[in-house]
Design a binder for these strands. Sequence first.
DNA 1: CGGGATCCGGTCGGATACTG
DNA 2: CAGTATCCGACCGGATCCCG
Lengths: 138, 138
Amino acid sequence: METINEQQIWNVYLRNCPCRDVLDLLANKWTALMMGALRTSPHRFGELRRAVEGISQKMLTQNLRTLERDGLVTRTVYPTTPPSVEYALTDMGREVSGYLVALSDWSQRNFSEITAARQDYDAKTEIQADGKAIPVAV
Amino acid sequence: METINEQQIWNVYLRNCPCRDVLDLLANKWTALMMGALRTSPHRFGELRRAVEGISQKMLTQNLRTLERDGLVTRTVYPTTPPSVEYALTDMGREVSGYLVALSDWSQRNFSEITAARQDYDAKTEIQADGKAIPVAV
DNA sequence: CGGGATCCGGTCGGATACTG
DNA sequence: CAGTATCCGACCGGATCCCG
């Protein structure tokens, strides 16, 4: 006996599908980096902040709360002095983190090729702009 | 003979790594949906607009230009009357679109579980807030 | 250490109007 | 049909100050 394929209910391509909110949360630079860092191992707040360089305390807190609320991350408080708080992925979080690190890794691997594509594009559109090429030399 | 593992140069976790821009582009709700639609087949502008319900013409154009510039999407103009323009994925675009649809699909599949997690979280934090449960009934 | 609260500039993104 | 241009409100996200 199998569970009936219960869900093609939600469709992100539809205008008012509520599951777009989830995609919106996941498709976010900071979320991808945070989940990627947590995928390595659980992190304390400060560790996470250092792991994801440049993230502000506000964005870190905000996204952590949302991820916790959505059941992707757990928050455990150890009543030491000073208190320490550990964030870890849930099973659901671990699953989706795979897709997110895939995106990060891809960005790193393909950056040079993308940079090349940009230069090509910019060179061509500059020529088109006023009908003549712009000399690179001074 | 193998190509030397030429690239661990770029690291999205570092503060000023330029490849973060790429991640920023990809980790975007509209990008994910557009790439997902294009993955099925090439689309004309209007088709794409209808496929990704609710996207404004401005965002569609803007993201298409960026994706084209980054070499993830091609733009082909057929000089018919009225003119028709076709957008399609490049090889690089097709590759990354896989990761993006994985995110979309995951959002759809897990939406109900996430909703449940949210309700749990909200119920608990409401109780914590002022020390007593808030009755649901009117 | 792990946050909460607030101020504020910048950009995201929708709505509308116009073009070839 | 496939855009460009502009206005404008919303919120994203950083900086700063504060607390237990």
